[in-house]
């Protein structure tokens, strides 16, 4: 099991946001988390990667307990979050944003990253090229400030940045947000492509139907709890899920 979440409970001050949820992700899967607004999906992702401190429960990554670890400590272990709402480094160029994705592996703090390092631990250029081949638009925009990109392009930067080090597990919070409706398909194709490249994916989506079509398994959240969990195919066929969560009559 790549990721194991056991009995997680999260409060915001006195407000209960997640109550005793458990979920698992095995290597190679795409797992989708769906559910209405405010159900606690983002909270779950934040608690898994350490952006939030849960009241109780355990998070195990590759069998290791990562409770109390901060996101920056998990990047090196291969767990990476793309937070809700893009969050690119607005004043930095696309290229610099991608470089920051490789922050943990580039050499010395005082060294100049963008220039060819004398003894590179990694070839940043090569990593960047991989991202450009996934999102070719970014290649043309590499010198542009990320804050001036369209929202879809910013989302590509945010995803590309998280992919720089080819994480073992990628947490995606609403990856299709900001893309035009007819591009959402393409986004999911990209996610599939990333997954085939060896990255396991746990994602949150408002495009519930689409997410389940591409996912292997799914969790349906309802006000702080998991209401259903099953193979994505089964969820799509489950009448109750279809009625209450996929907007079908």
């Amino acid at each position: 099991m790549l990721l194991e979440v056991k009995n997680l409970t999260v409060y915001y001050d006195a407000v209960l946001a997640l109550e005793n949820i458990s979920l698992t992700v095995s290597g190679g899967e795409i797992v989708a988390m769906i559910g209405p607004n405010g159900a606690g999906k983002s909270t779950a992702l934040k608690a898994i990667c350490g952006l939030l401190k849960p009241q109780s429960g355990d998070v195990l990554f590759q069998g290791e307990n990562i409770n109390g670890k901060q996101p920056y400590q998990l990047v090196e272990k291969g767990l990476c979050l793309v937070p809700e709402g893009r969050r690119v480094f607005t004043s930095m160029t696309v290229l610099e944003n991608l470089e920051m994705g490789a922050y943990t592996v580039t050499s010395g703090q005082w060294s100049v990253v963008s220039r060819k390092n004398r003894q590179p631990k990694v070839d940043i250029r090569q990593l960047v090229e991989k991202i450009f081949s996934l999102f070719p638009v970014l290649n043309k925009r590499q010198k542009q400030k990320a804050g001036t990109l369209s929202s879809g392009e910013q989302q590509m930067v945010a995803i590309g940045r998280a992919l720089m080090l080819k994480p073992k597990l990628l947490l995606l919070d609403e990856p299709s947000l900001g893309f035009s409706p007819n591009y959402v398909d393409t986004v999911f194709e990209k996610i599939k492509e990333i997954n085939r490249g060896g990255t396991t994916i746990l994602l949150v989506e408002q495009n519930a139907r689409m997410a389940l079509e591409y996912a292997d398994r799914g969790y349906v959240f309802e006000i702080g709890k998991i209401a259903f969990e099953d193979k994505a195919k089964n969820l799509l066929e489950n009448d109750e899920v279809r009625k209450s969560f996929l907007g079908e009559r």
Binding site: C49, L51, Q70, P71, Y72, V75, E76, C80, L81, V82, P83, R87, V88, F89, T90, S91, M92, M100, G101, Y103, T104, A158, R161, A162
Partner: peptide, 16 residues
């Protein structure tokens, strides 16, 4: 600069 732009995004790319 990354932290100045967005501390959360900086945290998730591995910056303490």
């Amino acid at each position: 600069r990354a932290v100045a732009d967005d501390p959360v995004a900086a945290n998730v790319v591995g910056i303490n």
